[in-house]
Nucleic acid binder design. Structure first.
Length: 843
RNA sequence: GCCCGGGUGGUGGAAUGGCAGACACGCCGGUCUUAGAAGCCGGUGCCGUAAGGCGUGAAGGUUCGAGUCCUUUCCCGGGCACCA
């Protein structure tokens, strides 16, 4: 039976799996959903199978819909130059086969493919809704540009400031990008976290990512009034009197005007150096060692008229607040460090507590040195001081209360071929006005982009013209200008566009009749891979619907996933982006709930034997097909679950699989004898010993609870304990065996089904409800009480569960292991925890 | 650098503040066998013949009692907005 030689263990269980798909059921199914599965990942790996597997065990006895998705594969296509769809298709076929061979109860009728135009039609449709609501705009944003490769590179494609491929130098370059205004939803995204059942760590990460902070915007006059005002954001307006200099982000638009002739060279050099760094580099380098350059100009502190120098430094980011700060070294560690480095003055405006030895003091305390004219904060603590100064600033029209978020708008475009095309064409101002007269569905404010003196207007395709498909292209390689390969497809790109219908013909052809036809250039950017995976969980509810992303009935009936499983690497981005889209759809009345993922779980991945992430290049990949061939599906499933907690990462251990395989053999042997007939020790008439019955009920309880809490490893160990007891018993009742097989079924469905039939169980084991346990049987009358002396374990004794402290103490005193430790000591105190311990404190 | 996890035997891992190491793997001994495989029985944190002592990355602290709570610290992993 090595390799589970009994062929019936391996029968295809598709017919077995209990699957509910329609929503005409009387009872709504339990809806689980896994994160996106990418066929781009190496397919012969066990780790990705594992992600899906454990969740498949969740409440198998309930009716279940399992779903999976495929997103496209782009990088291989770029590397090999083959059509991406071909690779994807091969991978999908193999992936499906593997999933099925593991016996998952997926609902294949609901499989969706985010690269299918029938699917991305609705991705584009959602984009149009965002566009109409003014949540999509165009802006110049820096990206990594490699002049040698003539292409845009992702962060991960940069290694040590060089391109990963070829090691060529890279630089930051501004390109026209689509950006989604996720910041408009910052407050809602933060607020919604209160209502979801997620790991606290994930909630905290999202909170930190959104990064809400309350403070004030303050207007500083510049010494040269021609330059206007300098607007800064601070969370500590109460420390305004301690401001001794200002810092602008090097890319702040006022910098050129503020820079004096003598400082010009230094400032320009610093700006260039900073521009070559990503934000992450800037932050980590700035945290280690501050740097900056004086612009030569000064600003005027609005509270006391003091003249303060204006610097630029990379520890201030343009993307946060106003890109400018007032520096208060006495109350801010970063500013302190900078002030010390460049010998700038420091004025304490909060009295540190007695004995304070640190540098900057960021805690609470009474304000000092904060009086000028009628205005004084002195003596006020931080909160009151903030309130007073903010009110004063507002009254003087020098500033206002302001809430700021670290969250930045979502850069939503890519310069690649293989992504959803934007359903947008660019037209002239006059054509846009003409279209606006014909179309009611344009945003309140037009989205425009200026280039070479002309302003282009973004005109959306009408919804009826979706999907906008990718043209077949000559080459999947980048255009070389920073635009996607689509920029080379002139016939697709330059068109006569019908503003009413969305129809288009190549611009080389004569202009069709009708005023709604206008000259247009299509958007060449494509959407990021996030787009399709932002809403796929909704498409599963109604995957073939041609009229809507899903019918209102399906959206209402199924709602959102009961459990969403995805890796911790998605903790911030994917989960925040998807929540954002969902909230927009909620506001549009399309989905009935404000949050998409009510309960969230992160699963770990299986590492290679060497404890490192599986990868083909490391050669530490385990192929599930091989394991199934030598041990069988049930063993593999059981092993993956037995390895450890779902959330943890753990290395694959080829030896470990023997243990669970032996366990399944043991189950088989206890049921079926050598001759293939039911084991004679299983009896219809035998009454099991009370201990065994109790153990069975304990096992039912523990496994059930563990499954609900997704602790499969401990439920399996409980089943092992139970089987070890069955093995030691000379006889066992058929009832008990059948009950056990019901418990085993969600973990090892094939063997459980086979044995269920052979042991005379009715129907399919998978159709039977989870057995009930009798809690009365679980009450212990006798318990082992542990005796401690001064907190150290000295002995134990079986005693009645209801024993009194006095009686227990008498037993302990007489206990041969305990007594010597009490000799010659006086008892100070006794701690008695019924059914647990008796701790005698002596001196 | 910042945010979030995690460090427990030779290994994977168990432990509502109450016997650290359940359950497995591995290893050692025994049994069965012509021999082996499989199975079964017993042992297995470290030091020690034993009594006992020591043990959950390290150092402090709270507590009658700490793997668990607090402080500091080291190491490993994930995320940091164009991998998704």
């Amino acid at each position: 039976m090595k390799g589970g030689g009994d062929a019936s263990w391996f029968q295809d269980v598709e017919g077995y799996a209990v699957i509910a798909t329609g929503f005409n059921q009387s009872r709504r199914g339990f809806l689980r959903m896994l994160g996106v599965i990418r066929p781009g990942a190496p397919l012969s790996m066990i780790d990705r199978r594992y992600e899906s597997l454990k969740v498949d065990r969740f409440k198998r006895w309930q009716r279940i819909v399992q779903t999976t998705t495929f997103v496209r594969l782009s990088r291989t296509a770029v590397k090999t130059g083959t059509h991406p769809a071909a690779n994807t298709q091969n991978n999908i076929v193999n992936f499906r086969r593997q999933i099925k061979s593991l016996g998952f109860s997926y609902d294949w009728e609901r499989e969706v493919d985010t690269t299918d135009p029938k699917y991305f039609r609705w991705t584009q449709w959602i984009f149009l809704q965002l566009f109409k609501k003014g949540l999509a705009y165009v802006d110049e944003r820096p990206v990594w540009w490699c002049p040698e490769l003539r292409t845009v590179l992702a962060n991960e494609e940069i290694v040590d400031g060089k391109s990963e491929v070829g090691g060529f130098p890279v630089e930051r370059r501004n390109l026209r990008q689509w950006v989604l205004r996720i910041t408009a939803y910052a407050e809602q995204l933060l607020d919604g976290l209160k209502d979801v059942d997620w790991p606290d760590s994930t909630k905290r990460m999202q909170e930190a990512w959104i990064g809400r902070s309350e403070g004030a915007e303050v207007r500083f006059k510049l010494e040269d009034p021609k330059l206007g005002d300098l607007l800064i954001f601070t969370t500590r307006p109460d420390t305004l009197f301690g401001c001794t200099y200002m810092v602008l982000a090097p890319e702040h638009p006022l910098v050129p005007a503020l820079t004096t002739a003598t400082q010009r060279d230094a400032v320009e050099a610093y700006r260039r150096k900073t521009a070559a760094k990503s934000d992450v580099e800037r932050m980590s380098e700035a945290a280690k060692e501050k740097s900056g350059v004086f612009t030569g100009s000064h600003a005027i502190n609005p509270v006391n008229g003091a003249k303060v120098p204006v610097w630029i430094a990379d520890y201030v980011l343009m993307g946060y607040g106003t890109g400018a700060i007032m520096a208060v070294p006495a109350q801010d560690e970063r500013d302190w460090e900078f002030a010390k480095l460049y010998d700038l003055p420091i004025i304490r405006t909060v009295q540190p507590p007695e004995g304070f030895t640190g540098d900057a003091y960021t805690g609470d305390g009474p304000a000092i040195n904060s009086t000028h004219g009628d205005l004084s904060l002195d003596g006020l603590h931080v909160t009151e001081a903030k309130a007073k100064i903010t009110a004063w600033l507002e009254a003087q029209q020098l500033g206002s209360r302001r809430i700021n978020y670290k969250l930045r708008d979502w850069l939503f475009s890519r310069q690649r071929y293989w992504g959803e095309p934007f359903p947008i064409v660019w037209v002239s101002a006059s054509d846009y006005q003409h279209a606006a007269a014909l179309r009611p569905d344009l945003p309140a404010q037009p989205v425009t982009f200026a280039e070479g003196g002309t302003t282009h207007y973004a005109l959306p395709l009408p919804e009826s013209a979706l999907p906008l498909e990718l043209p077949d292209v000559q080459s999947y390689l980048p255009s070389g200008t920073g635009e996607s390969p689509l920029a080379n497809e002139t016939a697709w790109l330059e068109v006569w566009f019908n503003a009413l219908t969305g129809a288009a013909i190549p611009a080389t052809q004569p202009r069709p009749a009708g005023t709604e036809w206008m000259r247009a250039r299509r958007e060449t950017n494509t959407m990021p891979q996030w787009a399709g995976s932002c809403w796929y969980y909704l498409r599963f509810l109604d995957p073939r619907n041609p009229d809507a992303l899903a019918s209102p009935e399906a959206l209402k009936y199924w709602g959102v996933p009961d459990l969403y499983v995805g890796g911790a690497e998605h903790a911030v981005l994917h989960l925040l982006y998807a929540r954002f889209w969902h909230k927009v759809l909620f506001d549009l009345g399309i989905v009935p709930q404000a949050e998409p993922f009510r309960k969230l779980l992160h699963q770990g991945i299986i590492l290679g034997e060497d404890g490192v992430k599986m990868s083909k290049s490391r050669g530490n990949v385990v192929n599930p097909d091989d394991i199934i061939r030598s041990y069988g599906t049930d063993t593999l499933r059981l092993y993956l679950m037995f390895l450890g907690p779902l959330e943890a990462m753990k290395p694959w251990n080829p030896k470990g699989i023997e243990g669970v395989h032996r366990f399944l053999h043991k189950v088989w042997r206890e049921c079926i004898g050598e001759n293939g007939q039911p084991n004679p020790k299983v009896s219809d008439t035998h009454e099991d010993a009370p201990e065994l019955i109790k153990l069975l009920h304990e096992t039912i309880r523990k496994t059930g609870e563990d499954i609900e809490n997704l602790r499969f490893n401990t439920s399996i160990s409980q089943m092992m304990i139970f089987m070890n007891a069955v093995q030691k018993a000379p006889q066992v009742s058929r009832r008990t065996i059948l009950a056990f097989l019901q418990i085993l079924a969600p973990f090892a469905p094939h063997i459980a089904e086979e044995l269920w039939a052979r042991m005379g169980g009715a129907g399919s084991v998978g159709q039977h409800p989870w057995p009930a346990y009798d809690s009365n049987l679980l009450e212990n009358t006798m318990v082992k009480l542990v005796f401690q002396v001064n907190g150290r374990h000295r002995g134990d004794q079986l005693v009645p569960a209801t024993i009194s402290q006095e009686a227990a103490f008498e037993i302990a005193k007489a206990h041969e292991r305990v007594a010597p430790h009490l000799m010659g000591k006086s008892v100070q105190r006794i701690i008695f925890v019924p059914k647990k311990i008796l701790n005698i404190v002596v001196a």
